[in-house]
């Protein structure tokens, strides 16, 4: 009888340990290491007039202005930090200065880099809206794109581009010439350095490359030499999606904070998640949608740490600030 009691005790302890392990892996007992951010300001509504949006898909910010990909309107809109409309540029098309569904935006060295999903190219503009350069063309060859979703620019002008349907990240020189790629062209995979519809990239100050592996539901990190460092998102970053802390359900945008933290737009979970550079979960925040669809589409970080995001379902720009 005593042995049965011991056996039962060990069994209960074992089951509890397994449940705790599953809960930990599942994120259920992953606590916020930081308080969430609070929504300080938002603006926008569906439409095509100044200040109205129709599918906001990307955002970039300077110390004075906010640039928004207004994808279905075929334009970039520029606002001040209070939400007042300042200017717009672009129109739907595939010519110079025209746009075919602009996606995640990047500003580097006073220039705006615009990946165009439909036109399979990166178009570079001055911040005033003057078209300067077109990089890439449709295809699956080196330096070509099939629905580019995001771009990061190194200090020397080199580009890192997520090539969504080609299932790769390309490293290009400033003139668009090919350097190397991560991932196997046109093939999804879940191993380290392989991708499943990658959407966006961000560069840390030391050249570390962070990739939002969109439907891989994870982040992958590479050192400045291009070697794989780590990945995170769900159990063992194997591609499982879910709503738990540190998990993703379509990672659609990624940005670096001034302290080296990593912010990831987690589209179907309607939130932005914040991590350390090592991938430790810190906090999450976002808006529930008022309209059909989801909100957590794209994110950009101001130099003071203020988080700017676009709410896709509700056609809004959002400003989030840390709760002090």
């Amino acid at each position: 009888m005593k042995k049965i009691g011991q056996w039962l005790g060990y069994s209960v302890l074992g089951i509890a340990a397994i449940l705790a392990l599953l809960a930990w892996v599942g994120g259920a007992i992953n606590r916020n290491q930081e308080p969430p951010y609070s929504l300080a300001q938002s603006w926008g509504e569906k439409g095509s007039g100044p200040g109205q949006l129709n599918d906001p898909t990307g955002i970039a910010v300077t110390d004075t202005e906010v640039f928004v990909s207004d994808a279905r309107n075929g334009r970039i809109q520029v606002f001040d930090h209070e939400g007042s409309f300042k200017r717009e540029f672009g129109t739907t098309g595939d010519g110079i200065g025209e746009l075919g569904r602009s996606m995640n935006l990047t500003i580097h060295d006073e220039k705006l880099y615009v990946p165009e999903y439909m036109n399979d190219r990166i178009q570079v503009f001055s911040l005033a809206g003057q078209p300067l350069e077109i990089i890439g063309s449709p295809g699956e060859g080196p330096g070509q794109f099939n629905a580019p979703g995001g771009v990061a620019v190194a200090d020397n002008g080199d580009l890192f581009v997520t090539d969504f349907y080609n299932q790769r990240v390309q490293h290009l020189r400033a003139d668009g010439s090919f350097v190397k790629q991560w991932g196997t062209t046109g093939e999804t995979a879940k191993g380290a350095g392989e991708f499943t519809y990658p959407t966006d990239v961000a560069l840390a100050d030391d050249g570390t490359l962070y990739v939002a592996d969109g439907y891989g539901n994870r982040v992958q990190v590479f050192d400045a030499g291009g070697d794989f460092l780590r990945k995170w998102g769900g159990p063992f970053a194997l591609g499982l999606y879910g709503p738990f802390k540190g998990w993703f359900t379509a990672a659609t945008s990624i940005a670096m904070g001034p302290e080296g933290n990593v912010f990831v737009a987690d589209f179907y979970n309607d939130r932005i998640q914040k991590f350390t550079a090592q991938g430790d979960y810190l906090t999450a925040f976002g808006s529930a949608p008022d309209n059909p669809g989801h909100t957590g589409m794209a994110v950009a970080i101001e130099s003071d740490g203020t988080v700017w995001a676009v709410n896709f379902a509700d056609n809004q720009v959002e400003k989030w600030e840390p709760v002090r």
């Binding site: 599918d55 994808a71 569904r101 629905a147 379509a250 589209f267």
Partner: peptide, 12 residues
Amino acid sequence: LACPFCAYGIEK
């Protein structure tokens, strides 16, 4: 189809 990365691919 909620995500534009998906919806635009179908349209394209």
